[in-house]
């Protein structure tokens, strides 16, 4: 934990160079895994959002810029970066850190959460308050694909497109709720993934060009224009575009530098809401990730090598949930 030891607030993170961000993310992931293997917690969701947390706190001036997390159980990296690193082992225990977000726990927790699909409404409220007070900070909401399909999030999308205030929505698209995501919106997001697969190489070309000296930026912009044109042509239904959102994506949600670039781009959009579409893997880095998605959504203690749960030694009667399912 060479880098992480020195990060006691996001301002410390922002003093690092972009080249350091993958290492910071790696250290955070390792720390979450080691801690959760001992005390248990919402391991899977938080492992999927490590780079997102790093990039968001790097690109935005938190807590001046308001960061709103949907649900909040994926925010362990956010907690680690915002002065709560040492307390992580107390998470979910009496007197310890909350497993979700609480306004009374940190000024970086701008809105309490626990249930899904509330972040866009809360963030839109904060954005309107900002406008009315004549302030100019950013408001960013981070929401998962399954939470975006929740009714309230859809209601917020509808109004955000209409109000045209500045709002950054980062879509953490992992094709999962606790279970695999279901529904037509999931199908729509899958089609976006597929459409992008078709010209994914253009992203990579874009990245290369962007890093090249001299003409890099201009060539990158040219490549971007081509890419946007293809995206607009290919995206079926164009849900976000038609509802008044700008769309940036997709971005590899486990590449902090690419994420920071996308977020910097999003910050430039002044005339309405923008969605940054990040593709992530829930449980990224969890040993034996593929086996059982329920097993690593919320875990008890587990073996760091195999990911196998460490069972309590005392046998207990069957759980109510199991009796209910079997009886039904």
């Amino acid at each position: 934990m060479n880098l992480l030891q020195k990060i006691n607030a996001p301002a410390d993170l922002r003093r690092l160079s972009p080249e350091d961000l993958p290492d910071v993310a790696g250290e955070i992931r390792q720390y979450i895994l080691e801690t959760m293997s001992r005390v248990g917690g919402h391991t899977g969701a938080s492992l999927g959002a490590v780079e997102l947390a790093v990039a968001l706190h790097y690109a935005f001036d938190t807590p001046r810029d308001r960061l709103v997390w949907d649900v909040g159980h994926q925010a362990y990296a956010h907690k680690i970066l915002t002065g709560r690193r040492e307390q992580l082992p107390t998470i979910k225990q009496y007197g310890g850190l909350s497993g979700f977000l609480r306004r009374d726990e940190s000024e970086f927790d701008t809105f309490g959460a626990g249930h899904a699909s509330t972040s866009l409404s809360a963030a839109l409220g904060m954005a309107i308050a900002r406008d009315q007070k004549g302030e100019d900070h950013h408001v960013v909401a981070l929401i998962g694909d399954s939470s975006l399909a929740g009714g309230m999030a859809m209601e917020a999308v509808n109004q955000a497109g209409h109000l045209k205030t500045r709002l950054v929505v980062v879509l953490n698209d992992n094709e999962m709720s606790i279970a695999p995501a279901v529904g037509a919106l999931t199908g729509y997001l899958n089609r976006i993934r597929e459409a992008h697969g078709y010209h994914r190489f253009k992203d990579e070309v874009g990245d290369l060009l962007h890093d090249a000296p001299l003409f890099g930026e201009r060539l990158y912009q040219a490549a971007k224009t081509v890419k946007d044109a293809i995206a607009a042509a290919v995206l079926p239904g164009a849900l976000v575009n038609e509802l008044g959102f700008k769309y940036i994506g997709y971005v590899d949600g486990h590449n902090p530098r690419a994420l920071v670039r996308a977020l910097e781009e999003a910050k430039q959009i002044k005339d309405g809401p923008v969605i940054v579409h990040a593709l992530t893997q829930k449980g990224k880095g969890f040993p034996s990730r593929e086996k059982n998605y329920y097993a690593w959504h919320a875990t008890g203690p587990f073996d760091l090598q195999t990911g196998a749960a460490i069972k309590a030694s005392k046998p207990a009667p069957p759980q109510y949930t199991a009796v209910f399912g079997d009886t039904l």
Binding site: A116, S117, S146, S147, A149, G150, G151, S177, I178, A179, A181, V182, G183, Y294, T321, A322, V323, F324, G325, D326, L328
Partner: peptide
Amino acid sequence: AMPDGTGIDKVLERYPERAFDVGIA
């Protein structure tokens, strides 16, 4: 969106036509 948490996962497996996961809704 809680097939596992509610025990409906077993029902979804056994009666896929008579069980629904509606999402977080």
